[in-house]
């Protein structure tokens, strides 16, 4: 069953800027979807509409089968939101602010659950610390704790690791993995392709208010990914032999490295023929390696293609 169903969602701001132009998106229960897109693509607007911070100008969103406008109480109870900015009251203590979040969602005080959430986020020792005395990373954890205080089924993380150091980013990924293991549906927006690659089940690419693609991470990488065969030669070549010309081969590193790009999903990769031709030309090979293009390259080329078309 789809946990989040977005249909023809549109948002035009008062100034006339169209942040979303008919977005369709379906997110299954228990999956992690990463929304990738450049600044101003519409990621935060999309999340903000689903969570109730921004009013849509068209389309429909259902969460857990309920409409976000007509039945906002039901949908908001299901949703936890971790905003991009560190929005916390500096003078409040960690435990109080997390308890407040639970109460705000209409739930009975549950000290055991709050303790569990704080322990999982390594915040229990800081429970009586005023928020202003915490480090940036700890503050981000408090935001997550607040979002988890009402046991949401769907968690939105808006740029959860923006400006966070590498170690903390990995911690954050572990936290997300732990939540997924408990069955929470997670939607995160990110600039970091590495992040999407590391933790998402599916990737959605959004640009200029439109979803360009939503696809399983692995199939996306296989489908879109160009692969490279990198052949390290025994002795450098000055030019490519005539027999090897016209195949898009590149000679790099002063003639020591031969690079052959190919489509990993094509019927023929051309590798066998290349190796045979190298042997026939008497060119000795020291080493070979293959390299798959990363999501980042896929993403950049996709956004550029779209901009070229626009």
């Amino acid at each position: 069953m789809a946990m989040v169903e977005v249909a023809q969602l549109a948002k035009k701001y008062d100034g006339g800027f169209e942040a979303l132009k008919g977005v369709d998106l379906s997110i299954a229960e228990g999956e992690i979807l990463a929304l990738l897109g450049p600044n101003g693509a519409g990621k935060t607007t999309l999340i903000s509409i689903i969570c109730g911070l921004v009013t849509p100008t068209g389309g429909q969103v259902r969460v857990g089968g309920h409409d976000i406008l007509a039945d906002y109480r039901s949908t908001r109870r299901l949703i936890g939101l971790v905003p991009q900015e560190i929005n916390l009251e500096p003078f409040e203590k960690v435990l109080n602010t997390v308890r407040f979040s639970r109460g705000l969602f209409g739930l009975k005080r549950d000290d055991a659950l709050i303790e569990d959430v704080l322990r999982r986020l390594s915040l229990w020792d800081k429970r009586d610390t005023p928020i202003r005395a915490l480090s940036g990373g700890m503050k981000r954890r408090v935001l997550i704790a607040k979002a988890l205080a009402h046991e949401p089924k769907v968690l939105f993380l808006d740029e959860p690791t923006a400006g966070v150091d590498v170690e903390l980013r990995r911690d954050m990924w572990e936290i997300v993995a732990g939540l997924k293991a408990q069955g929470t549906t997670i939607i995160l927006t990110t600039h970091y392709i590495e992040e999407a690659e590391a933790i998402a089940d599916r990737i959605g690419v959004i640009n200029r208010g439109r979803i360009l693609l939503v696809e399983d991470k692995h199939s996306l990488m296989t489908r879109m990914g160009r692969k490279e065969l990198r052949v390290l030669l025994d002795s450098p070549l000055e030019t490519l032999p005539a027999a090897l010309e016209g195949r898009g081969l590149e000679l790099l590193d002063d003639g020591r490295l031969l690079v052959h790009s190919y489509d990993s999903t094509a019927e023929r990769s051309g590798i066998a023929r290349l190796m045979a031709d190298l042997a026939a030309e008497g060119i000795a090979v020291r080493d070979v390696a293959t390299r798959q293009s990363s999501l980042e390259e896929i993403f950049v080329s996709m956004v550029h293609n779209e901009e070229d078309e626009a």
Binding site: C51, Y72, R76, I79, L81, N87, E89, S101, L104
Partner: peptide
């Protein structure tokens, strides 16, 4: 005004109230 100023208003607007 304070929650608006420091941004914590998001929580109020996304809560079932």
């Amino acid at each position: 005004y304070f929650p608006k100023f420091i941004g914590t208003i998001y929580e109020l607007l996304s809560a079932p109230v």
